[in-house]
């Protein structure tokens, strides 16, 4: 039902802990609408700059739309302090292990699923490195009902870009993808470049996957980030409409 100004709204948001990779207790920022539910869930996978204000606000945005949303702190293990200092430590270490991220996100999904107000439907979504991680999780774990890749660089990888932390290009796992996929990309982006998005789309199409890609002229990497010069209002507004329509179709 569309929102009306005379309707009651209430949210709850708090820091929680859930069980992630190797049984570690991992922090997550959880936001959800008040009430008995049922609420569909979404795991929001933060970008390389970390568990920052933009992602906390994104979590609240999804909760206002009726989702139980959780944003796990993928950098929990390196220490605690200002988000930028923690993220810098991870950047200086070359990022986080793919396996660790997949397990942490799977743990966050389980946390959502166990909530008494859960509808049982769960999406995963992320921007930048988080978009790549979202795709990886949707290919490597069951129970994902929808996945959104916002300009995830490194889904397509050259052999020389593979590392111990990122040993397999996510595109290699495409046959195992079962969830419908929404991809949002800027045509001025360099990673993923339009050619890499073409390559990804060709593999999805050949494998008969359920996907929709929306690609925007005049937009580059990170065009949703309203606090950065990369923000593109027109393209971002259109893409958000695509996001809500996609989630309404597959999760609600």
């Amino acid at each position: 039902m569309p929102y009306s100004t005379d309707q009651y709204e209430g949210l709850m948001a708090e820091t929680v802990r859930f069980t992630g990779h190797q049984g570690d207790a991992v922090h997550g920022y959880l936001a959800r609408p008040l009430g008995a539910g049922p609420a569909p869930g979404i795991v929001l996978i933060h970008h390389a700059p970390g568990w920052d204000t933009w992602y906390k606000e994104l979590t609240l945005k999804f909760a206002r739309r009726g989702y139980a949303a959780i944003c796990p702190n993928l950098y929990d293990r390196v220490g605690h302090g200002a988000p930028q200092d923690v993220a810098a430590m991870v950047r200086n270490a070359g990022g986080v292990l793919d396996d660790q991220v997949v397990d942490d996100v799977a743990g966050a999904m389980q946390y959502l699923r166990d909530l008494p107000y859960s509808s049982g439907k769960i999406a995963v979504a992320g921007t930048c490195s988080g978009g790549r991680h979202a795709y990886l999780v949707a290919c490597r774990r069951t129970g994902v009902d929808a996945v959104i890749d916002f300009w995830g660089g490194g889904v397509v990888m050259r052999p020389e870009d593979l590392t111990e932390k990122r040993p397999v290009a996510p595109i290699q796992y495409t046959d195992a993808l079962t969830a419908p996929l929404l991809g949002i990309f800027g045509n001025d982006d360099r990673n993923p470049s339009p050619e890499q998005v073409d390559q990804h789309e060709a593999v999805l199409k050949a494998a008969g996957k359920d996907y929709e890609f929306h690609r925007y002229d005049g937009a580059g990497h990170g065009f949703f980030y309203h606090d950065r010069p990369a923000y593109r209002q027109e393209q971002a507004s259109d893409a958000w409409r695509k996001v809500w329509a996609f989630l309404d179709k597959h999760l609600v």
């Binding site: 390389a48 220490g79 302090g81 930028q84 200092d85 430590m89 200086n92 930048c128 990170g222 990369a230």
Partner: peptide, 26 residues
Amino acid sequence: DHPFNAPYEHALNIDFTNEAEGPGAR
């Protein structure tokens, strides 16, 4: 790589650190 604050998609970032003292020693 991505800066946190400078208005560029990529920047040359230098972190002078003492990692043994934690993330704030930067």
